[in-house]
Design a protein around this nucleic acid. Structure first.
Lengths: 159, 159
DNA sequence: TCTGAAACCTCTTCCAT
DNA sequence: ATGGAAGAGGTTTCAGA
């Protein structure tokens, strides 16, 4: 991990390919990027050690798993002190229904992405889970009507 | 795809495990869920065919790839008509820097998740990319100061 | 539904370039 | 640093019980 690395155009293609299909073998990568399997294998290992390539995960269909409601929830804390924030973040980390949490600029302190079963379930998560926390002053929920685009791959065309 | 499926507690464990590590073999899955490799392999295939298990993707470190700035951008369209929305969504789908787009309830029509290099890059993406689009009436940007939590796995403990 | 075994693929190293 | 070759080891897939 965390050894500096120089990324060339072949690395770029490897990263691009693995972000879309994390199961490609060195052989398959080699064919796509125009190199050899051994070379690709070495590059992938180097990119892993540098921390560029992280976990391989399986994506799932939330609707089929009964988690059809996405909500973004903005949170304001009573105080923005370091300890207050640390306690809140530890608390959020333990909340299974909160899949993402960002510290943000502007009127609110945090933006949460909550994955709920339905509105009733969200009410439960929010009122009897999140908002029960002492540190929270107020919140505002943005309900997702539809996922228009949902990618995990970040662009690397301009390295 | 899309054949209805009954998910039992072993399927649940398989989904849980693959959401965290998408490279687990049938053998490894079998050990974790207390079943046989062949059985796990059949279950995984059934879950894939049902559409529950989707792609396997490799996650990357955005900072090491020069994409250290996340911004959430709320968009209001000039009109919410069907064709206006369709045109906008097609446009957004083509924008590499927009990794997520949600149609939302409330004061705004869409919530975009943009991954930019830095503030100057975001200004370019927003002003000379997104806001150039005719359909947009106004926008408001929420800058991410820090990723506190960022999971791709959704909870399945309560199926 | 499981076990076992065959066929297949992949990882990993070594070596010559 | 690269590509080719090759053995060890793991994975998929299909019989047969």
């Amino acid at each position: 991990m965390n050894k500096a690395i120089q990324i060339d155009s072949i690395d770029r293609k490897i990263i691009e390919a693995l972000q879309v299909n994390g199961r490609l073998s060195s052989q398959e990568l080699a064919e796509r990027v125009g190199s050899s399997a051994a070379s690709c294998w070495r590059r992938v290992r180097a990119l892993e050690e540098a921390g560029v390539l992280q976990e391989t995960v399986r994506l799932v269909d939330p609707v089929l798993l009964g988690r059809g409601l996405d909500v973004f929830c903005q949170i304001r804390l009573k105080s923005q002190g370091r300890s207050q924030r640390a306690v809140f973040e530890t608390f959020i980390d333990a909340q299974q229904d909160v899949v993402e949490c960002y510290s943000i600029s502007g009127d609110w302190d945090y933006l949460l992405h909550v994955v709920a079963k339905d509105v009733a379930d969200y009410e439960r998560v929010l009122m009897h889970g999140i908002l029960d926390h002492d540190a929270i002053a107020s919140s505002s929920s943005i309900f997702v009507l539809r996922r228009v685009k949902h990618k995990t791959a970040i662009p690397v065309h301009d390295l």
